[in-house]
Amino acid sequence: MVFTRLVTDSISGYQSDQETNSTTVRHDWSQPGPPSVALVEAVAAATDRTTADLPLRHRSVDADAFDALLTSEESASVTVSFKYADTTVRVNRNGNIEIQIDGALTDGDDD
């Protein structure tokens, strides 16, 4: 089953495929707020947790480098993949944040 719903003002769409535990969020990097914040909001929505329930993102990705890669005019075809909060996240410059839930969710203490 695939559905779309609005997650926040900065995230334009949220699609979830329950059969594959996969979620894709489309985000406009030119909108206010850094991509690293949109990433945390997208993972929270995909895992049905609050952003406060997620582990600190700096354990998985350098937020400053992440934001610079995704907002730089010079990085037209960048894709970044990493593990975060019991998910595998793949983000690209065109605004797609793909989230694959890896397994049973924990309290967020392990990443």
Rank of each mutant, 00 (worst) to 15 (best):
D28P: 02
D67R: 00
T88H: 08
S60R: 01
T20C: 10
A104V: 14
Q31K: 12
A52G: 10
T4D: 15
R90D: 09
H27Y: 09
A45D: 11
I99V: 15
S72Y: 01
R57N: 07
N96F: 01
A44R: 05
P32F: 04
Y84M: 08
D9C: 06
D111L: 02
T88L: 09
F66A: 09
L6A: 12
P34N: 10
R59Y: 14
R59G: 13
R93L: 00
I99D: 01
S16R: 08
A65P: 00
V89Y: 00
D9T: 10
P35V: 02
D17Q: 07
A76P: 02
Y14C: 11
V89A: 01
S81E: 06
A44K: 03
A44E: 07
N92E: 05
T88V: 09
D111R: 06
I101L: 15
R5E: 15
F66K: 05
G103P: 09
Q15G: 07
A38D: 07
F3N: 14
D67Q: 09
Q18C: 13
N92Y: 02
A44C: 13
F82V: 03
S77N: 13
R90M: 11
L69N: 11
S81M: 00
D109I: 11
D53G: 10
E41I: 06
T24Y: 00
A65F: 06
Q15N: 12
Y14D: 11
I99C: 03
G95Q: 02
A44T: 12
S60A: 14
S72D: 14
I11N: 04
S30P: 02
A42F: 02
D48W: 08
A52W: 04
V80L: 15
P32V: 09
L56R: 08
H27P: 03
A68P: 02
D109K: 14
D109R: 15
W29Q: 11
T88N: 10
P55E: 05
S30Y: 01
G13I: 05
P34G: 07
Q15W: 01
S12E: 08
T4P: 06
V2I: 13
